[in-house]
């Protein structure tokens, strides 16, 4: 009875039945399997969150982004970065820059940080609702993700962390063109 002490004092020594043994074996196997999948995907998979982070003050990061944007080229659809580094500065309630022109098949280092509160970097492939990835943008940290887009097209960026009353207006986009 679960509302009384175990009826046998030697409850620890009582044997298990075959059905219990089968299930316990499966449970241990499942636990090990679930655990091993994560390191395995780091070795064999192509989608892993980065561990690449630097501490940086919001002011220094803002300066860094401004300096970088001066070297970028303004084209019709947005800002084309000078190299493979792409900077995004989140702030209530805009992204800077809010439109970037990138090329497919190029591994970009995407730097993320914020000048005020937590924001969310949520990137969605236009028209392919299930193709998306989400990351936290935390003040005081510069998070660097490498992304290499397979398909050209528009990738929408929305803020996915509550950041205040204008949260819903915080959108940006990557326009990915064919590598030329």
């Amino acid at each position: 009875m679960p509302i009384a002490p175990p009826s046998e004092r030697n409850w620890w020594d009582l044997p298990l039945g075959i059905h219990e043994k089968v299930w316990l074996t499966l449970v241990v196997a499942v636990g090990l399997g679930l655990f091993i999948m994560m390191p395995l995907w780091h070795v064999f998979g192509r989608q892993n969150p980065s561990s690449n982070t630097y501490r940086i003050s919001p002011e220094s990061y803002a300066t860094k982004v401004t300096d970088w944007s001066k070297g970028a080229r303004q084209v019709a659809e947005g800002l084309a970065p000078p190299g493979q580094d792409v900077y995004l500065l989140a702030g209530r309630f805009t992204w800077f820059p809010n439109a970037l022109v990138l090329q497919s098949g190029v591994p970009y280092r995407i730097h993320l940080s914020t000048k005020d509160v937590n924001h969310g970097f949520s990137i969605h492939r236009d028209g392919e609702a299930a193709q998306k990835a989400n990351f936290q943008v935390v003040p005081g940290y510069e998070y660097i993700l490498t992304m290499e887009f397979t398909n050209p097209g528009v990738y929408h960026i929305v803020c996915q962390e509550y950041c205040g009353i204008g949260h819903q207006f915080m959108v940006a986009k990557f326009v990915v063109t064919e590598r030329g």
């Binding site: 989400n134 990351f135 936290q136």
Partner: peptide, 12 residues
């Protein structure tokens, strides 16, 4: 709660 799979659902 799996490290990589979380990227697709975080804050959704």
């Amino acid at each position: 709660g799996t490290e990589q799979l979380n990227m697709m659902v975080h804050n959704t």
